[in-house]
Every structure is written in C-alpha cells, then in structure tokens.
Design a protein around this nucleic acid. Structure first.
Lengths: 258, 258
DNA sequence: TTCTGTGAAACCATTCACAGCC
DNA sequence: GGCTGTGAATGGTTTCACAGAA
C-alpha cells in the first residue's frame, strides 16, 4: 500500500556515495541529511494528523519540525512533488510518501545485544514493535540474565547470535554492551548477515563498507554540550568557571576517557 | 555499564534545534563537525594511553577513530599544532589539549528529568560523574518515584526544577520524559538558566536561540537504518542465514519507482 | 494572491596533494 | 624517509529568490 511515489531524481545522476565510500554506487538521490529529517517530519505529521489537520503548509510544518521552510520544501522535493501550490501538503498523503521512502512499509526484525542497564531499558521500550521494528532476539553473556524474558523475549547467549539472527530474519542489530565487548558482538552480527547496526557502546566499530552503522554516544553528546557551555554560555548563569582559555594552562583533567 | 552515547556523523541527524546563532566569532571557530569528532578522538586516545603508547601518528589515530587521516589532521589543526613532523602526536599532550578545548577541565552539573524506563538507566550510569558530569538532581512527576533515591540522588517533583537547578549549579539538563511532557520540562530548565540540553524525548523542542539542544532519538535512528536496509542492503545475498527472510516483501527498489 | 518547487548562490565540510620540519 | 600542517580543490548542504501552478 502506499505506493505511488515518484521520485524525481534531480538532474543528472550525481552519483555519490554514502559517507563512506562505496564501491558500487548507484545514483541515489536523497541526501543523507534529508533522510534524517524525513523521520522527524514523519513524527510531526503524525501529531498533526492526530489533531485533525488535513493539510499543512511548508511554513507550518517546518516550524513544528524546527527547520526553515526552504529546507523542508527542498527535502520534500527529493521524494517527489507532493504539495499543492497555494494550499500546502496533504498530511495523510505525505505520511504515506515518507513511510514508503524510509522503507517503513515493511517490518525490520531487530536483535538487541547487551541487556544491562541501558539495554534492559531499550528492550522494555514497547514503542519499538509498534513502529515496525519488532524485537526478535535478546543476547547477553551474563549468566544472571540468560534465560530471563523481557517483554516476552528470551535472553540468549551471545554465542548464538549467528544462528538466531539468521533464523528469525533479523536485519537490524542494536548493540548496548560495554565498550570492550562491542567489536566482537558487531563481528558476529555482521557474520549473521546484519547490515545495519545501531551502536550505543562507547566504541568505534570497524565494519565492512556495506554495513551501515549509526552511533549514539552519551559521552560524546555531553562533551559537545560542554564545549558550548565553556564557550558561550556559562557566563549568564552560574558556572563561574574561571578562565577557560589560557592556552597552556591545563588545570586538572577531570576526565580521562576510558 | 554500558551506556554512553552519541552520535555524530554527518549531519546527522538530528540536529537539533540548536540555532546556531553566531554572535561571537572571535576565536577561530572550530567547526561543529570537528567538535563532535574531538570527543571521539579523546576516547581513542584514552585507550591508547592505557596500552602505554606515548605517541601516535595521524594515520593510526585516524584508523582507530574511524576517519581518514587528512580529516584528523585538519581537525587537530583547529586546536593548534600539537604534533611533531616525522613522529606524530604525543598522546598525553593531545588529551590535555582536547579536554581543554571541550571545556572538560571544569565540571558541569547535570539534572535529569524523567526517571522512567530510560531515565532510570541513565541515572544509574555511574560513568556520568566520573567523567566530569556530576548528576546533581533528578526530577519526575510520578508519585511512585518521588522520594526515592537513585545513585544517591533524590527524585524530586518537576515543579522544583527552577529552584533546585539554580541552587545546585546545574548547567546541563537531560530530558528523558515521554514526548508530550518534554516541552514543558524544557521551558522550566531554560527558565532555571540551563543553556545546554540533551533531549531523549521524541519531540522537537522550541528554545530561545542561545540554548543549545542536542537530540538523541531512537525512532529516528531506526528509521534511518530502515531507509538503508530498504535501499541498499538486502540484495546481497544474504545472509547466510538460511534465511527466513521472508517477512514481507522484498524490496528492492533501489531507486524509487515511479 | 498564496504557497510550492527549484535553479543558482552561498556556505560548510571533506579530501587532495604537497611544502616543510624532524 | 616519515609525518604533520595547510592551501586548494572538491563535494555536499543550506539558503536565497523567484517562476509558476492552483
């Protein structure tokens, strides 16, 4: 359902690879940055639909999504012309269009490795399944966790990743292990045929180029915020903080990365 | 154990509302993309230091961080010349340099709002404090949670955000509430003087431009991966998995059909 | 007239390639 | 010779600004 898109490939094929180069590149036309925003538009559109709106202008949708309207229109133009000049976009149609482009009309089996603190929370997050990403397997190596069920899913030993993932049609892997274990887990997922990984572990993963990895790193996010606090903000409120710029002077490193 | 996260990458997503007002551009501006990578280099350098390395070449450090060496050298050039030609970079010195730039030589008090599933996991993550981001306050509105302690921190009512944050010198706020509650929480944090926010709620936050918001959105990340699964992967043969790959359809439109 | 769709310009980030120091 | 630091080239993203459909 839901098909009827039309994708206008802009001008000439601008081939281009993904961030990571790729041997075989077809010309895909949707910029990576646009794909990320499409997911955001989708959520905002869902809210709009819930309030009964049937159409929305680029200006309003952009404001709700936190981007400017020219960017939004350009983004939508990559997935075809879906608006009506003088009127705006039909909410329901746009939702179908974006879901189609993002591949959300099919389900993607998910395996989560590492049922510790964070992993447990993620496994318990029901929004997963309801959004087309059914959790099909849980793995860990801790004997206290093996055998328990979370949200109805059995926690199995990480050694079984290859067979279980293949068996249950897992296409997306989520890694929530401690950093040191992440690479080995990743290797097993890749061996099992998984080509898309979401990594919460504080570890840079080395993968073959056909594997797509997205990273979510709390420490990095906090440090980026720290950078901004140190430079611009900080004087307004508290944080006295003594001089931060001195060039040579290192006070005392509070943080030592692992 | 295990948590920590963030994401970087190209544009990735998510950017967030952060309006990038550029008011003061006195110092040589360090590109946003570079800042995100500096945090990654910092972690890799920590690993290197732990193994006893005293110096490292741009080639090796880049490989470990998952970027190419030219990019790494360019990034490091923004924070000054710290290497020795013909030799490489002194690990300890580079660590200090990056910590200084990221503002990690000072501590940043953190308040976390929303102690549900995910929030609880984040609050229990001790790595927070040890990395220079002491957790100073926890908030929620659920009476079952008010009054309990997590990691020694009392959970207080969200109505107290303004006074408590001001009192304890909180400079960074972390929002882990359900989407609908996020904006109100954000407004209170801003009112309390917080200028840096890490948002885990599935909600676009509207903030004054002097406030920096970074977004971590599980649904968005999954959908981006979905796009790639739908587009590129899948045809490779598959997986060793014997495949039950069936699930719904195969899809293959690599380039959107029309 | 309103609002979309889109070339073209501006901007930012990445990669190249090599001069210069060790 | 090995490796950093960086101008120049390239490529991707955002913004501008306006033609054109409803």
């Amino acid at each position: 359902m839901t098909l009827q898109p039309r994708a206008a490939l802009p001008g000439n094929g601008t081939g281009s690879g993904t961030a990571q180069s790729n041997g075989a590149k077809l010309d895909r036309a949707i910029p990576e940055a646009t794909v990320a925003r499409l997911a955001v538009y989708l959520r905002v559109l869902g809210d709009l639909a819930a309030t009964g709106s049937e159409t929305v202008s680029s200006e309003d949708l952009a404001a709700a999504a936190g981007v400017n309207s020219a960017k939004l229109r350009k983004d939508l133009s990559y997935i075809g012309s879906n608006g009506t000049r003088g009127v705006g976009y039909e909410v329901a149609r746009l939702v179908r269009q974006i879901e189609h482009i993002l591949g959300l009309t099919q389900r993607h089996g998910v395996a989560l490795v590492g049922v510790g603190n964070l992993g447990h929370a993620l496994a318990g997050y029901s929004g997963f399944a309801s959004r087309g990403f059914p959790l099909r397997a849980l793995f860990d190596v801790d004997s206290d966790l093996l055998g328990i069920h979370i949200n109805g899913i059995l926690v199995e030993h990480a050694d079984r990743i290859p067979e279980v993932c293949a068996e249950r049609g897992v296409t997306i892997g989520v890694i929530a292990t401690p950093g040191p274990a992440a690479q080995a887990v990743c290797d097993r997922l890749v061996a099992a045929g998984v080509r898309s990984i979401l990594n919460f572990a504080p570890q840079v993963l080395q993968v073959p180029e056909e594997v797509e990895v997205r990273k979510v790193d709390l420490a990095v996010e906090m440090q980026i915020l720290s950078f901004h606090v140190a430079r611009r903000h900080g004087e307004g409120g508290q944080g006295g903080s003594g001089g931060v710029n001195g060039e040579a002077g290192a006070e005392r490193p509070v943080v030592v990365p692992q």
